[in-house]
Amino acid sequence: MMWEIIYIFLGIGVAFNMLGSLGLIRFPDVYTRLHAGTKCTTFGSIFICFAIIAYGLWRWYDGEKEMISLAIHTFFAMIAILLTNPTGAHAIARAAHRSGVKPARAVVDDLEAKEGEND
């Protein structure tokens, strides 16, 4: 029973990570690629973390006391992913816009107007 739950978590995680990498190939410019590269990889990696936490807690419950550390470490890794992944995406997007990369096929660009005012 536990193995099935772990495999389901792993399957969801791998599927979303794969969609994220597919998005990196298919989308036209850096901003839309960041959409795929942050949302999907965060969500997918969180599910992979869930699988590891489930495994660690299960082994711990079965009497292998040291396996609890696997679950705790993975939990911290999950929080780190959840906080740093969107932050890194902001940094990349902001740097891209400042260095003059225009969003492809954009219908509106308010930031462009604002930077124009400052010049």
């Binding site: 979303f16 969609l19 989308f27 901003y31 999907c40 969500f43 954009a106």
Partner: peptide, 24 residues
């Protein structure tokens, strides 16, 4: 919302239907 976002991105990855822009 995050789960919804992923299905949204998945849909857009597979169909390529996007209309991007930067709003304030």
């Amino acid at each position: 919302e995050m789960a919804k976002a992923n299905f949204d991105v998945a849909y857009r990855v597979l169909t390529g239907r996007i209309k991007p822009g930067i709003v304030k």
